[in-house]
Amino acid sequence: MTIHLEDMQVIYQHPESLLNVNTHYCPGCTHGVAHRLVAEVIDEMNLRNDCIGVASVGCSVFAYNYFDFDFIQSPHGRAPAMATGVKRVHPDKVVLTYQGDGDMISIGTAEITHAAARGENITVIFINNANYGMTGGQMAPTTLPGQKTTSSPKGRDVEQAGYPIRASEMLATLDGAGYIARRSLHDPKNIRLAKKAIRTAFETQVRGLGFSMVELLSICPTNWHLNPAASTRWLEENMLPYYPLGDYKVHPALKDLKF
């Protein structure tokens, strides 16, 4: 039997919005999965030529080396403020930030909170991996009670270090938020759901419905000292109970959206 190439259907290919290069992410790290999902959504919505990305400080600091559109790189935690500056100058363009948990909800708590409160028409991809990846696995504002990190070697003691922040729940209380959802990248089914949420977030921005954010529960095999498979199990067993998946804010105009 001969196979005619022209009869074949493309069902999987490298997204145009992602450069075809090796990344610096550790093997098994879900930063790569998150990048791919964002790139696929931008391709599907045909937004690449209109996109301006803002990279943050963390393992994803070099996100601009992977996404194939205009990109700038912010100081630690300030990406939402920079994105605000960009969006106010280019209201007709699509502006996204890509931030880790230390970046977004520790040093950058004020910037993200006020961007959400203003209903800043930007999309935030928020990677929650329960630690500071880039600096070698210190305690983050998302580190779980009892979780061992290099700066909480006996496990996070809530009496001394306080409690983790559930950023999605917190930001969803703000009227400026148009879409806020938490998804997880620990298995294929959840990855699909994550992609849908990312799509909804960009639809929110394109429709001018306010601030949008997708929190993605992610693994950091290197600093968790677990292999990738064990990391996904750790996420499932420990992070899911503390950080329930779901939609925390959905603008009424998004409810009947079909794609």
Partner: peptide
Amino acid sequence: ESELGAINMVYGAACA
């Protein structure tokens, strides 16, 4: 929201 916010908005607008 603060001068930190202001200067980084300026930074973003300047880059833009």
